[in-house]
Amino acid sequence: MSLRMLPEWDPHERVWIGFPSDPVAWGEPLAEAQRQIAAFANAVHDGGRGETVHLIAKGAEATARARDLCDDGVIIEDRLIGDIWLRDTGCILVGGGSDRIARNFGFNGWGNRFSYEGDQMIGRELAEAAGFPVTDCDWVLEGGSVDVDGEGLAVTTVDCLLNPNRNPALDRSAIEALLARDLGIDRLLWLGDGLANDHTDGHVDNLARFVAANHLVIPEARDADDPNAAVYADAHRRAEAFGCKVTALPSVGRFEQDGEAVPASYMNFYIGNSAVVVPVYGSRYDDAALSALDTLFPRRKIIGLRADAVLTGGGSFHCSSQQIPF
């Protein structure tokens, strides 16, 4: 039997989080994005009550900035990280205890859209520094494109995993076979499209997340101008038809930056050892989403943190992180 990717709510030994470092790539939002990611790191660390946090920055200036913003105990590392999205460029750990192995997947800049020095090597570098054996996997997969319940079930989107800009020679059955081989996934729920204007081609961690075995949370549009109303409704239908329990959370609603609707989503939360950290955007639905998650995670604190500056870079808290299970 293949080693299995564990669910995010299982205990973590540590987490890697990317820190915005490149002023050219980030532009004017850089300083605020740094503050928001540092606040995320501090919340996950939780004064030592949460988990060990390794914040990965690039260069002396960004490293010093991270040290200024982070609490004592957050480990700051200066490495050649490309963009901050370690969910996609970092390795995915499978197995537990002494059997843990880091799966190092191919990465092509989200369908050859973006290329930053360090993206190709940072996953292996971090895994080897942590002492894990690394297995190279001979196909392109980003961690944000799959979510698992720990019992062999995963969810993804056709929009991303069957996009010809990733693995043009692989069809649905081939991808399912590779997920079984590399991540121990034996059942795969295929949702349709991802969120509008998501440059990842619809990563599922913006659309649907497992909160327990066979139990998904999926947004629900509350406003007539929500650009993703049809996407959410279709995801609900597919998940329920597959046999999953589905809990609806309110969508952020239409959220614009520079006059364009962008993929702001509460689904990009991170499930830490002591807290669930949720991106919020000043929407009138922020409090309702946090309250719903509080019901689903009664043993963890629910912490909402602003993530609008981080979103200018194309993602949010979950996208910037990659956990290491025990």
Rank of each mutant, 00 (worst) to 15 (best):
M1D: 14
R4P: 05
E13C: 03
R14M: 14
R14L: 15
I17F: 09
P20Q: 01
D22V: 00
D22S: 01
A25Y: 10
A25N: 09
L30V: 07
R35Q: 14
Q36N: 10
A38M: 02
R49L: 12
V53N: 01
A57H: 08
G59T: 05
R65F: 11
R65Y: 08
A66E: 04
R67P: 08
D68A: 15
L69Q: 06
V74M: 09
G82M: 00
D83E: 07
I84A: 02
W85A: 00
L86M: 09
R87D: 04
C91R: 02
I92M: 15
L93W: 14
G95F: 12
G97F: 04
A102K: 02
A102S: 02
N104M: 03
G106Q: 13
F107P: 01
W110K: 04
R113M: 13
F114G: 01
G118A: 06
Q120R: 15
P133G: 06
P133C: 00
D136Q: 14
D136V: 00
C137T: 03
C137N: 12
E142A: 09
G143C: 02
G143P: 01
G144H: 03
G144T: 02
E151R: 13
T156A: 12
N163H: 14
R166E: 08
R166Y: 11
P168D: 08
R181M: 14
L188V: 07
G194Q: 13
G194V: 06
A196H: 15
N197T: 04
N197P: 03
G202A: 03
G202L: 02
V204E: 09
A208E: 07
F210L: 10
I218K: 01
P219D: 07
E220Q: 14
A221I: 00
A221T: 05
A221D: 13
D223G: 04
V231N: 09
A233C: 02
H236S: 07
E240R: 15
C244D: 09
P250I: 00
A264R: 03
S265H: 05
N268Q: 05
F269I: 04
I271H: 02
Y281C: 04
Y281F: 15
A289V: 11
L290V: 05
R300D: 13
R300L: 10
R300I: 12
I302G: 09
L305S: 12
L305C: 13
R306S: 11
A307E: 07
D308G: 08
G313H: 03
G314V: 02
G314N: 07
F317Q: 12
F317S: 11
F317T: 09
S321G: 15
F326G: 13
